[in-house]
Design a binder for these strands. Sequence first.
RNA 1: GGCGCCAUAGCCAAGCGGUAAGGCACGGGUUUGCAAAACCCUGAUCGACGGUUCGAAUCCGUCUGGCGCCUCCA
Length: 472
Amino acid sequence: MTIYNTLSRRIERFETIEPGVVRMYVCGVTVYDSAHVGHGMSAIVFDVIRRYLEYRGYRVRHAQNFTDIDDKIIDRANREGIAPDDLTARMIADWHAELGRLNILPATVYPRATEEIGPIVAMIEGLIAKGHAYPVAGDVYFRVRAFPGYGKLSHRDLDDLLSGARIEVDERKEDPLDFALWKAAKPGEPSWPSPWSAGRPGWHIECSAMCTTHLGGLVDIHGGGADLIFPHHENEIAQSEAFLGRQPFARYWVHNGLLRLGGEKMSKSLGNFVRLREILDRDLGAAFRLMVLQSHYRAPLTYTEEGLLGAERGLDRLRAAAGEAAAPDGAAATDDAAGDSADLPALAAETERRFHAAMSDDFDTPGAVAALFALGRAINRARAERRPPGTIEPARRTLIALAGVLGLPLAIDETTGAGDAAPFIELLVGVRDELRAAKQWALSDRIRDGLAERGITLEDGATGSTWSRRKA
RNA sequence: GGCGCCAUAGCCAAGCGGUAAGGCACGGGUUUGCAAAACCCUGAUCGACGGUUCGAAUCCGUCUGGCGCCUCCA
């Protein structure tokens, strides 16, 4: 297996610190607002990485944090007139519910900044003792120039950073680049005791502390969105390696490309985001996952409604192949011998080979998905040619299994979203089946058109009609 | 201003020196009472200009156009 490392800018061979075990830390979210589809994309990327590693036999210890104290949380809670704790508790509950609906496997641990104050304070004390940090009026700052490797992840040197000149100069800091490890609380803000002040941790230190507490201070994969490379992950490396006195602190730095909307990065601060809940409520979570997987995880992806619905259409074809449905009524004539649909077992084996070749090569999910479509088409074709189910079954199982590795559920749940209407729809469909048997076309078409207007699609097969709710 | 990424058919998107995956849409067909679904067929020489090479979408240079980071951000 190979994996791209942001640190070396190379695709490297994947080797874990401990054989058979992968320690993976993925930076989570600051819980001041509900998740948008960009968060969903990142979650999907690391979910698939994890699923594939587990499929390959690794035991994956996966930690994902919640930043549950910071300025935006305090502001938001104040505006809503509630306690920060209540806001973050609600957001975290929503996060778990929504990501669950996206079919994201739960992480092994979900550490939270406010529950790690002890280790955070201890780490800051250690950094001060080693001369890597200094307290100033209740705050504590990291001494960037005392850490020689600073900039190695984002590949820039200190002078480049300074020339950016957009760093607001805080006179209390020794150097403009120094960043906060601990911030003294202002009146009315939540705070925790520390040797320097009643205050709260800076953003970056929590991840360093959590990696140390929950993953032994040395992780195989450290990931997040590409927007975290600088300064967040750069600072994490500085803190952790300065504190631990050894390097590397993480073997592979993995960053997903960002989701774009309207030509720009989707982000909460730009205000151009689509909430994850919106697509989940339309039952398009699996379609979104497929859309994400059809582009490489490191490349940026443009989010469009068209793309999402297109993915849903593609998913339908895979679902048709994965279903146990009998052959469609008419045997479609095939006028050439281009595809060896009779040789499904060989194609299934070939698909499996292609799938693993792609996934082992820096998680090339587009290639893996392409292999799945090839197999799906062959299965549908075999059905159209009325091949015996027994010859199709193994290929079908392969398709479902491989799709499962990507977290794509192919099981059909046709009544999803129909709610209380289902019994009435079924009654109508049953009546219509009888009308069709009696060749009462006008009436049966009227029922079909009427249901279509109400978002229910009918499909007439050899053994009767099936119905499903149209997604839009 | 600095660092970096990208530009492939109508749209999305793979490709990592050997002659262009896949998905969606469009069109033609098979099937169907008519549909739907499914299946078959159909489309690109890879932003522009140079260079390296037997051979380049893939390597190098210049240009043009996007984007990201340098401040909170998955």
